[in-house]
Design a protein around this nucleic acid. Structure first.
Lengths: 119, 119
DNA sequence: TCGTTGACCTACACTTAGTGTAGCATAGTA
DNA sequence: TACTATGCTACACTAAGTGTAGGTCAACGA
């Protein structure tokens, strides 16, 4: 079992963010130690890592909660979940292309600067 | 000259966002028509497009304002601006790599789902 | 034994980057 | 003349956290 500090470190999340996700229902209320400190299993840690991944792809907290509810509902929701993840994958691909064009824009600006232009 | 609606459309920004940027000092207070409506020049439009680009690369509004102040200060700030844009470019490259690894994570999740696993 | 870290707890305030809404003015159109 | 579109300001609200105050508890060193 991991403390919230360890979990945060492992998952690359802020402690406050983990508590926030718990409040929002993205996680079951964590088990507690005798000192009332949150304790996380390996599985919960993996889920935190995946939450982080989904958040970074731009999925909203509320949508992740919907997804989590589906996971809990069992294999009947698999097709729906596959669709959801595929859609997220599409968005991510679009986003990567957008980033590349932003990169080009920055490079173009740098070129102008290298030529001594002020704009 | 462009109205705020046209500017928003051209730059791909929300009208409210443009007014917000003006309030934050990322833009000079726009010229006004006889009807008190904001009017934008081609140059201002280009700047709006670049603001959008910088925002999408993750640069904060306050940092864009710093950058804008440097642009206004003239060519003496060119080296500093080059540094800033280069740093932003680096961040963007890191971000693109992160997105690719998120993509891999989603694909891995899909593979598990295709195999009928629930997690 | 005392004191002081360090990690945790809750509750609440604050932040960022906008978006949405209410209430109003004005211009062009049917 | 009525309606619709577009614009204006000011203010409220949102998302996704982050930061802070005030408190508990265990462990470590003098």
């Amino acid at each position: 079992m991991f403390t919230i500090g360890q979990a945060a470190k492992e998952a690359g999340l802020n402690i406050g963010a983990i508590r926030f996700y718990e409040r929002k229902g993205l996680l079951e209320p964590a088990a507690r130690s005798a000192q009332n400190n949150r304790l996380y299993t390996e599985n919960e840690l993996n889920w935190l890592v995946f939450i982080k991944c989904l958040r970074e792809t731009g999925m909203g907290v509320e949508d992740i909660k919907q997804y989590y509810d589906m996971v809990k509902a069992g294999t009947a929701t698999l097709p729906e979940r596959i669709k959801l993840i595929q859609e997220q994958k599409e968005k991510l691909l679009v986003d990567i292309e957008a980033k590349k064009s932003q990169l080009a824009h920055l490079e173009q600006k740098l070129d102008r600067y290298y030529r001594g232009e002020n704009y």
